[in-house]
Simulated assay, not measured.
Amino acid sequence: MPEVISGISFALALLFYSAASALFFLDVARSRARLPSAGDLAGLFGAGGRVHEPGARPSAALAATASRHAPLLLGLGALGHATYVTLASFVARVCPVHSVHFMLSVASLLAIGVYLVARRRFRIDALGLLIGPLGLAFLLGTFFLGKPHPEPKFSPLFIAAHIMANLLGIALFLLAGASAALYLVQEKRLKQKRHVERMGNLPPLDTLDRAVHLFLSAGFPLLTLGIVTGTYWAHRLEMGNTEEVMRAIFGYATWLLIALVLLLRAAAGWRGRRAAYGTIAGLACAGAVLVIYLVRPAAGLGG
């Protein structure tokens, strides 16, 4: 019976966390500034870079639904998460405090509790963009609680989803990083008051800034999927594998930096240079993850 309840609580927490994370993302992605239209992106890579009329925004009804139901779903997910961790410890007959993932789960549950209490008073609803996916990732990490030794068998579909999510996410971040670099170059030229004819075909700053936001918004859900599946996969983190630890650190750093750029744009109006620097920093962390993959055979990091 405890095994059945444990499995049900795990499934419900997974469902609620996923739904809450999606709603928080939809709420934050509808930035106060419109996303680039097709004409803007054509201007980004073509001559002229002229700004076109705004595209259609998500409906106000959808935004209201996200703001209203996301915290409730997050709280239900945390309840299922706490139930699962408690029952899984008894079923596996292990001391959960010896597990890295258990400690991370407790930290995420505490963060969710503080967030749900403080969000209305301090108007920090947008912070759910960080809290929801973290709860989801650490929930999946506890799946290996009490069973660190058997090598898990993953389906080809799971492996393909993990790899493709990371590859597509990094591809979009490369575009965001390129747009951010162009933004910094264009801004420097404008500050130096160079003549327009000497600026080549670089698009306006506003177009570049919105392009950065578009590419980050498109890549963030993919990176989140990669982080979630990677956490589910990284059971060897419990054994202190050097490669896994380094990859996890840079992977979470990438996700956190990109999430902060999106969050601060929605909550604090961050745009322009600050968003560009944050995007480039996130791209650098993603590059570190790729370097670890490439140098692993030569350096013997996998042990």
Rank of each mutant, 00 (worst) to 15 (best):
E3V: 01
S6I: 05
G7Q: 10
A11S: 10
L12C: 11
A13Y: 08
F16Y: 06
A19H: 05
F25I: 05
A29R: 02
R34A: 12
G39A: 10
G39L: 08
D40P: 08
L41T: 10
A42W: 15
G43V: 04
L44Y: 05
G49W: 02
R50E: 15
R50F: 12
P54W: 00
P58A: 10
A66R: 02
P71T: 06
G75I: 06
G77A: 13
A78W: 00
A78E: 10
A82T: 14
T83I: 05
Y84R: 04
T86K: 02
L87A: 11
R93K: 13
R93W: 14
V94D: 08
P96K: 00
H101L: 11
F102M: 08
M103H: 10
L109R: 10
L109W: 06
G113A: 14
G113I: 06
L116S: 06
A118N: 04
R120C: 05
R121K: 12
F122G: 00
D125P: 00
D125T: 07
P133C: 10
L134A: 03
G135F: 02
L136R: 02
L140S: 00
G141R: 03
L145Y: 08
G146Y: 05
G146N: 09
P156N: 08
F158R: 04
A165H: 05
A171K: 03
L174A: 13
A178P: 02
A178E: 09
S179L: 03
Y183Q: 01
V185I: 15
E187P: 03
E187Y: 00
K191T: 13
K191M: 14
K193R: 04
H195F: 15
V196S: 06
E197V: 07
L202H: 01
P203I: 08
P204L: 12
L205Q: 07
D209L: 05
A211D: 05
H213Y: 06
F215I: 02
F215A: 07
S217G: 13
G219V: 00
T224Y: 04
L225A: 14
G226N: 12
T229M: 02
G230R: 00
T231N: 01
W233V: 09
A234W: 09
A248I: 06
I249M: 11
I249Y: 13
G251N: 11
G251C: 08
A253Q: 10
T254Y: 07
T254A: 12
T254R: 04
L257K: 13
L257H: 09
I258A: 11
I258W: 11
A259S: 11
A259R: 05
V261T: 03
R265Q: 13
A266Q: 10
A266V: 07
G269Q: 02
R271L: 09
G272E: 10
R273M: 03
R274V: 13
R274N: 14
R274T: 15
I280Y: 05
A281C: 09
A286P: 09
G287E: 03
Y293L: 12
Y293M: 13
Y293A: 09
Y293P: 03
V295W: 11
R296F: 07
P297N: 07
